[in-house]
Amino acid sequence: MAEIAFYGFSALAIGAALTILFTRNVMYAALCLFIALLGVAALYVLAGADFLAITQLLIYVGGVLVLLIFGVMLTHRAERESSQKANIVLTTHLNRFWGALIALSIFGLLFWLISHANFLIIQSPELSESSARHSTLKQVGVNLMTSHVWAFEVAGILLLVALVGAAYLAFQRENEK
């Protein structure tokens, strides 16, 4: 049952990613990114990371995707030939050959590595307990406040700086235009 779900959600994610690759419409690419992120979030759940799946949905779908769609809208010059025609945001494809070559060769390398790798995973005694699969929420919270508190604070400062910087950059000053 879990394997069927795994195959289904990975097919969803990979299919959406392929649609991003082959479509020329930027808006479709953004919406397919949404589907791909949903698939990846479901894969997180299958890997036992429930908190991370919810975070992925909240941040990517609620934040990043809305930002991307705003970016598409704000940086598109509408060609007003007729108001009946849909305004389609198209992108051009270049370097098709080199893109396919580099991507396929890197995938081949990774596939060869993964299929030949012999992961020696040390069985921790906790893994064999029946209580191994409960929510990770508590452990993540404890980690954030104890062992990872330094990274947590730095992430907070980074978010603040990014917010201020993005607002400063995007602000339209009087002397421009």
Binding site: I14, A17, I20, L68, T91
Partner: peptide, 25 residues
């Protein structure tokens, strides 16, 4: 393997697309 496929597709998207937002995707 799923992660490798997604990585390669993302790399191909970055190389082929000419729109900055598509590259960001």
């Amino acid at each position: 393997i799923v992660a490798a496929v997604l990585f390669s597709i993302g790399l191909a998207v970055i190389i082929t697309k000419r729109n900055t937002i598509a590259v960001l995707i």
